[in-house]
């Protein structure tokens, strides 16, 4: 039974990963992330899944919404109002705990599934494992990233 379900899960996740598009991996252990394809339900999310690019970068409306989401989920508590850092690291400079966060796919993976060093998973289904209604949708993650990138300061 267990095995079967596991295979079924893979079956959902794999075609997507295999589909010309990108395959997402966890920042914690590099294992594939099984995000149901149906969650990528906006043009930007679909584009991200095929090219790994964030179409919201520079989009003023998306950035505004991204800021709201960043507040709504209390990212501000640990990373400051603009992502400048507080009890959690700065997200708008060019120094990263995980180098891959400099690119769109890497930072998506980190926000979605968390890190081993104190950053909890924020993606829907990953944030509160027994309540998949909680957490950010892929589209929302992309908007948060657009907000963060719009605040980026070079040193």
């Amino acid at each position: 039974m267990m095995k079967l379900r596991y295979i079924a899960l893979l079956a959902i996740a794999l075609p997507y990963a295999g589909n010309a598009g990108i395959s997402l991996v966890s920042t914690i252990d590099n294992k594939p992330l099984a995000i149901p394809g149906a969650m990528f339900d906006t043009p930007a999310a679909k584009e991200f899944m095929s090219s790994g690019k964030n179409a919201y970068l520079g989009n003023a409306d998306a950035i505004k919404t991204g800021k709201k989401i960043f507040q709504m989920y209390s990212c501000t508590a640990c990373h400051g109002a603009k992502g400048e850092g507080a009890v959690g690291p700065n997200l708008i400079d060019d120094k990263w705990n995980y180098a891959k966060n400099a690119n769109d796919q890497g930072i998506f993976e980190t926000i979605w599934a968390g890190t081993a060093g104190g950053m909890g998973a924020k993606g829907a289904g990953a944030m509160v494992p027994d309540d998949p209604t909680q957490g950010l949708s892929p589209d929302e993650v992309l908007k948060v990233v657009a907000f963060l990138r719009s605040n980026a300061v070079k040193h």
């Binding site: 709504m72 989920y73 400051g80 109002a81």
Partner: peptide, 20 residues
């Protein structure tokens, strides 16, 4: 001190303001 809308999710931070 800027209060902001935030969502209560059990086990997640629920701060609702940003300060400098």
């Amino acid at each position: 001190y800027e209060p902001v809308e935030s969502k209560y999710i059990a086990g997640q931070p629920w701060v609702g303001a940003t300060l400098t």
